[in-house]
Amino acid sequence: MAIIVNLDVMLAKRKVKSKDLAEAVGITVQNISLLKSGKVKGIRFSTLEAICDYLDCVPGDILEYRREGDQSD
């Protein structure tokens, strides 16, 4: 998929556990896990806002657009 979710990277950078983020954002740990693995079709602005607020980051830190066939990383 062209949109890459870097939530796990941000969680590691901020040394935050998925469970704590789930509690702070108000969604389940399972949904955080699905989000981390990119197995979701979309993310609500309210969820993104809450994640950015808790992790003190911007949406671009969590979501990345990678062109099809781009082999960076």
């Binding site: 699905l34 989000l35 979701v40 079709k41 979309g42 993310i43 609500r44 969820t47």
Partner: peptide
């Protein structure tokens, strides 16, 4: 509804 269920 099923599509919305895949939104977090």
């Amino acid at each position: 509804a099923e599509e919305n269920a895949h939104f977090v």
